[in-house]
Every structure is written in C-alpha cells, then in structure tokens.
Amino acid sequence: MELKEIQELIKFVAKAGVAEVELESKGFKIVVKTQHKSQENTVYVQAPVAAAPAPVAAAPVAAAAAASPPAAAPAEDNSKYITVKAPMVGTFYRRPSPDKPLFVNVGDEVKAGGVLCIIEAMKLFNEIESDISGRVVKILVDDASPVEYDQPLFLIDPS
C-alpha cells in the first residue's frame, strides 16, 4: 500500500469517527485507531502475525486531522504489540534468583537485548532477551510456572 493510500485511509477514519479500522492487504495488516486522549489517529503497519515469527517494528504515523470521540471504547487490540515467546519447554522465572529483584514489570521500558526472564530447563538457564526496544505491556505467565515451546510470555509495545 502506498503512503498516499494510507493518508487517505487516515482521513477517511477521522471523518467517519469510528474507533478502529483494520485492513489486510498483500501481506500487510494496517490498523488505524482513533485515540480519545491525544485526539490523534495512529496507524500501525505490521506483517501478519502468522507469517512472521521475528518481530517487525510497528511504524506509528500521527495524522494531522483531529478525530471525533468514538461512541464506544475500543476493544482490546494486541496486534500492535510484539509478542515474546518461549523458545523451549521449561520453568519461567521473573528474577535471576529468589533474593534478586524482578527483571521487568508491566510499564517498564526495555531496550533490545534487555533480559525479560529466565527459562530453566534441566539445569540449563536461558535468559530471554527483548527482541526490540519498547514498553512491557503485559506479562502473560506467572513466576515459577511451567511454559511450553512457543508459548507467549510478554507483550512489548515498540511505539
């Protein structure tokens, strides 16, 4: 999709006053959202989740036009976040040892390469690092819980 088409889409959403429009086309998914607080529209462009195991950085584009507040609150949409998954079966730990502080909390800013958790499997300790810089939005697993291969662990907001 061309930049001009994206801009047209933003204008259309702003005029229509809807909370969110999602469009999938030619391997890309585009979500245009209306945000109440900032009175701005934000567009996230990312590859489809199923097609890309590696995270693709979302590219927020602020629209110039102000939007009307939507009638209803938007449904929870996690598509703009990067999901960090377990690369192996094991036990999920949020701190390096019981007497040490947590690696991260919800709301923390993390840098690419920053440690998010440890998965311990048969005395092998695996530090799971953030794939990208961003903010920790959700921690999907409880401390000291077993995790399966490919199980989602964290949602990171790269914007």
Binding site: P53, P87, E129, D131
Partner: peptide, 12 residues
C-alpha cells in the same frame, strides 16, 4: 552451569 542468551527465538 550452562547459561544461554536468546533473542528472536535464537540462541545468541
């Protein structure tokens, strides 16, 4: 004691 670092599902 073996430790590994992972990013994007790959051992680094």
């Amino acid at each position: 004691l073996l430790e590994n670092g992972w990013q994007n599902g790959q051992a680094m």
